[in-house]
Design a protein around this nucleic acid. Structure first.
Lengths: 225, 225
DNA sequence: TGTACATCAGTGAACGCGCGTTCACTGATGTAC
DNA sequence: TGTACATCAGTGAACGCGCGTTCACTGATGTAC
């Protein structure tokens, strides 16, 4: 019982999409980005994303996409920008939840983990797609830059609180260490789903922070010089 | 001047491949694996590898591949097996170069880094391709297993030498930490070529080992209990 | 030593498919009179 | 208020391409006699 759902463009009796008022054709643009983003969340690979699938998900025929995006690459760039903004927003929010710099850093890391767990396809796409056109070697203009800056600042606040890091490490070096560890964990465990009896992600992250002297210690503090 | 090189199957005047003696058709099998492996070293993505390209690189027409491999997937599995074996071989060799457990561990890590730097496409493929058929959740049968075991043993030797690791960590946990860090570094820096002013890889690795109490220290040792 | 024949490694052509993209078209929306 | 017309968001059909795979075939290798 229940007809298979044959509707949308391309199917018999498909109702034509109600066309947008003049000058507001760009409304569809947002819907296309959202549709492509949703599909990428599952696929995790831009090569697997077809313009036909995006069109179908947006409830539109394929050529309609080309009114809003010159080519597939342009659509991908637009999706990437929204996903980067989302990731940065999530970790900045998490970091500003509390005042204690160590707890703040910890929450950032956990938020980063959670983003990857909840949207593995997006995490993959963020790092696996060539940087948007116009962004070259310098890291300053990369959409990841604001997020990394927040991490460095968060660690600097811990250092300012009196932590003595291992010899010769500044906040940038420590940020790189934290980021690499988190990325390795996410990529192997969540993205590649490498079969392995992994310890809990939170345990691993907290251990890594503790090893760098950035853990949230409740006793035996050596934070004061 | 100089004719464009039009030779090989499919081109005019192409010399037919000299056929192998009877019963030795499997000789071609090895050449196909080698050709596919070479191509993957550059591509880093099995989806980008075409059977036509493999055939051309092996100096043979496409259908010839199907005498040796039932399908593309079977060829990929065969390539993966050779690449995993190579990676394990390289790190085992590096670890056995010296007796000192700390220096041995350090050399393993550097060998792992070097493999990824020299064959980024292969490193990518090892972790990005679904495990060969028949290998499921248990990690024991995964081709990476022997390599990981060597890492755990190497770290255990350091612990046996008297190192006190951070509270409650055993050699397996420490091995996971080292591996995740290395993988994160390799994936972001070498595979994804993420634009960033990276510190030298060796510096990062040595710092990570030192943080875990596994560094090669020349003075101020606290290894003895 | 010579000839007829079976084997099977490798070939050339073609299959059906999904892809990104293009094109001429349709018809609701909005405006001019 | 009513009608003719311009605009342009969205459509349906098709393009050329590269892909994995299949098929009937070719012809050198090796063997039987």
């Amino acid at each position: 019982m229940g007809q298979p759902e044959l509707s949308g463009p391309g199917f018999p009796n498909s109702p034509r999409r109600r066309r947008a008022p003049k000058g507001e054709g760009h409304r569809l643009r947002g819907e296309i980005i959202a549709a492509a983003s949703d599909l990428l969340a599952d696929l995790g690979d831009p090569n697997q994303l077809s313009m036909r699938a995006v069109a179908a998900a947006a409830g539109v025929t394929t050529p309609s996409i080309y009114r809003n995006f010159a080519a597939k690459q342009a659509l991908l760039v637009a999706v990437l920008e929204t996903r980067w903004a989302e990731l940065v927003r999530v970790i900045v929010e998490a970091a500003s939840e509390v005042d204690d710099p160590f707890e703040s850093l910890r929450r950032m890391g956990h938020a980063y983990l959670r983003f990857a767990e909840e949207h593995p396809g997006h995490y993959q796409v963020l790092f696996r797609t060539a940087a948007p056109a116009g962004i070259t070697e310098g890291s300053a203009q990369h959409p990841a830059a604001p997020g990394f800056v927040v991490l460095v600042e968060s660690i600097q606040r811990c250092l300012d609180a009196g932590v003595r890091p291992p010899a010769g490490r500044d906040s940038t070096f420590l940020a790189v260490q934290v980021w690499l560890f988190l990325h390795g964990l996410i990529d192997l465990r969540i993205v590649q789903q490498f079969p392995f009896p992994w310890p809990p992600s939170e345990t691993l992250l907290d251990a890594a922070l503790a090893d760098l002297g950035l853990g949230t210690r409740r006793e035996g503090q050596e934070r004061d010089q």
